[in-house]
Design a protein around this nucleic acid. Structure first.
Length: 602
DNA sequence: TAGCCTATCT
DNA sequence: GAGATAGGCT
């Protein structure tokens, strides 16, 4: 201690022969540690408790007598190694602690190795490296890694793809397997998905169809999950989003998605809550007109939900403030599809369009994924979409504005005209969905004149998951052209007081009549809106009900009374983050069946 | 055990 | 936040 305190000599390593009965060495260790001197403790006893105490007191490593003096010839490496590590630590890696642990373990092992053999330097170094690897693995497995998982121990898993887990060294190697989903790769993925079609949209089969060397099922599954949740953006889109958010900080994908997706929580499985599927005997039960056939927990009105389910959870809008811009006249494209064609993909990529007319006939599966795409800044006035679906055609999955990046857009008048004769399925999905729009206003969004005969019309939400969209008014109703028989009605919404909506200050309301011209109000309340909501939703026979939908900020539990044709009543309480009250719903349908639905979140 | 799926982690 | 991974579940 005297030598150390004088500091006249530069000391790198100190070997202490200690007697545990004399605890004075503890001070010496502390002093050595303060001076960055590596201390080797040699003593009579050897057990974990002693070793732990000694190491904790500042010893670099700990040996039991007899002391093998050969180790001295190696000590310089530890001094050097320590200097290197401290250099690295100064660079801010913050991994010094792990290194220390590695050292302790490896030095202990080194001693053992030396006891048993007359190893040369070369072999000794090799042993040391191995030990360090082992030590790192120990650190990882027993420490942060496994603790953070906080899950049960399923043990090491090894599947046919060689996806070994819980191995840090493998993790390093696996970094090479990081798969970025480029647009091309995603296109291949989507092609496979479409090729597989309904009900076969599983990772393994997608992988097989894609048949890309090196691609794993897990990667496909992960990507599939992203796509189902609409959480995947192509690199180009990501870049665009970044660009937008830099230019003008907006409610971007994270916040918007988390609010519009997460807060709705897990949708109940269709079968669990819809006892009477006869409502629409011809409809697709599993509903996967879009290639992702499963239920969806994050996306309230995702494609693939049954129409009944969607009807139960009719439009849920997120209305936020926006900027406006209006201009433009457009092209007049027309698409006619007939006879055994399966068509997908963007119908139209453009900066604006005025009129679009589709005619689809004859065993055609027509699935325009989007009509509007990739407009940076544009507006649409008087947007008309005239669709004729006839003769066994399947029209599905149309998303009028979907997956789209629109900087700023205005659609003043949106008219959807559908004529459907003798059609197998007309499944209209969201008009606007999953759209990244900087700012969009639709002043008059209406779907009109859905003339239907002998077809199955599966009305789906006109808008879901829109971001930053204002809807001034929206009409949509269905008329039976021939039989005067009304099919499942879709919504009829009027947002009459848009000023309130824009400012998110006041109550919003909507009138949604159905086939018999009954009206109801539905008010959807979201995070930012501070006012009250109320909804009266009558159904075919003139019953009325209130639906109150409440979200994060509401402090009182919502409630709803929803009678139906037979004057049945039920309450629906939808509760979110704060879980302030129980939720329950009894939702009878045309045949008077009843069921309970409880929809709960967080 | 393989594989799907969701939640969680890196 | 994209992609990987854990673990429940069938």
């Amino acid at each position: 201690m005297s030598m150390l305190s004088k500091g006249k000599q530069k000391i790198d390593v100190m070997i202490l022969n200690v007697h545990l009965s004399n605890s004075s060495f503890v001070d010496l260790l502390a002093q050595a540690e303060a001076l960055n001197i590596i201390s080797l403790v040699v003593c009579d006893e050897s057990n974990e408790v002693v070793a732990k105490k000694t190491l904790n007191d500042g010893a670099y490593f700990y040996l039991k007598k007899p002391f093998d003096k050969k180790i001295v010839s190696y000590l310089w490496q530890f001094v050097l190694g320590e200097k290197v590590r401290k250099e690295k630590a100064r660079e801010g890696s913050g991994k010094h602690k792990d290194h220390m642990k590695v050292k302790m373990i490896s030095t202990n092992n080194i001693v053992g190795e030396n006891k048993e053999s007359e190893e040369k330097n070369v072999s000794y170094s090799k042993a040391q490296n191995n030990n360090i690897h082992e030590a790192r693995k120990d650190v990882a497995l027993s420490g942060k890694y496994t603790l953070q998982r906080k899950r049960g121990t399923k043990g090491m898993k090894q599947n046919s793809e060689g996806e070994r887990q819980n191995n840090v060294i493998d993790k390093v190697v696996r970094r090479k397997d990081y798969r970025e989903w480029t647009e091309d790769l995603h296109a291949t993925f989507m092609q496979a998905v479409r090729q597989l079609g309904e009900g076969r949209c599983y990772p393994k089969e997608i992988l097989q169809v894609m048949s890309l060397p090196g691609l794993t099922r897990m990667q496909v599954a992960s990507h599939l999950q992203k796509c189902r949740r609409n959480n995947w953006r192509s690199p180009k889109e990501r870049k665009y989003i970044r660009h937008l958010s830099i230019q003008r900080p907006i409610v971007t994908s994270h916040e918007t998605r988390s609010s519009s997706f997460q807060k709705f929580g897990v949708m109940p499985y269709p079968q669990a809550n819809v006892p009477n599927q006869q409502r629409n005997p011809n409809q697709i039960q599993r509903g996967p007109e879009f290639p992702f056939p499963t239920h969806n927990t994050n996306n309230i009105f995702t494609q693939g939900e049954s129409s009944i389910q969607r009807q139960l959870y009719r439009p849920q809008f997120q209305v936020q403030h926006h900027n406006l811009s209006i201009d433009n006249s457009f092209l007049s494209p027309q698409t006619n599809v007939s006879g055994g064609i399966q068509q997908h993909g963007p119908l139209f990529e453009m900066l604006g369009l005025q009129r679009l007319q589709d005619s689809i006939t004859g065993n055609t599966n027509f699935r325009p994924d989007m009509l509007l795409n990739n407009g940076a800044n544009h507006s649409e006035k008087n947007y008309n979409f005239n669709l004729n679906v006839a003769q066994g055609a399947t029209y599905s999955g149309s998303r009028i504005v979907s997956g789209t990046y629109i900087g700023n857009a205005i659609i003043n008048n949106y008219n959807l005209n559908v004529t459907a004769d003798n059609v197998t399925t007309y499944s209209s999905s969201a008009m606007m969905s999953d759209t990244y729009v900087g700012n969009v206003t639709i002043n008059d969004l209406r779907g009109t004149n859905v003339n239907a005969s002998s077809q199955q019309y599966v009305g789906e939400p006109i808008m879901y998951g829109p971001r930053n969209i204002d809807v001034a008014s929206y009409d949509n109703y269905v008329e039976g052209s021939n039989s005067n028989e009304k099919e499942n009605c879709d919504a009829h919404l009027n947002f009459n007081n848009m000023d309130n909506l824009f400012q998110n200050l006041g109550p919003s309301s909507a009138n949604l009549p159905n086939e018999q011209g009954i009206e109801f109000d539905q008010v959807y309340f979201d995070d930012q809106i501070l006012g009250l909501l109320s909804a009266n939703l009558p159904n075919e026979l003139g019953s009325e009900f209130d639906q109150v939908y409440s979200d994060n900020q509401n402090l009182e539990p919502p409630s709803a009374n929803l009678p139906n044709e037979q004057d049945n009543e039920f309450d629906q309480v939808y509760s979110d983050d704060q879980n302030l009250g129980p939720s329950s719903a009894n939702l009878p349908n045309e045949q008077g069946n009843e069921f309970d639905q409880v929809y709960s979140d967080d």
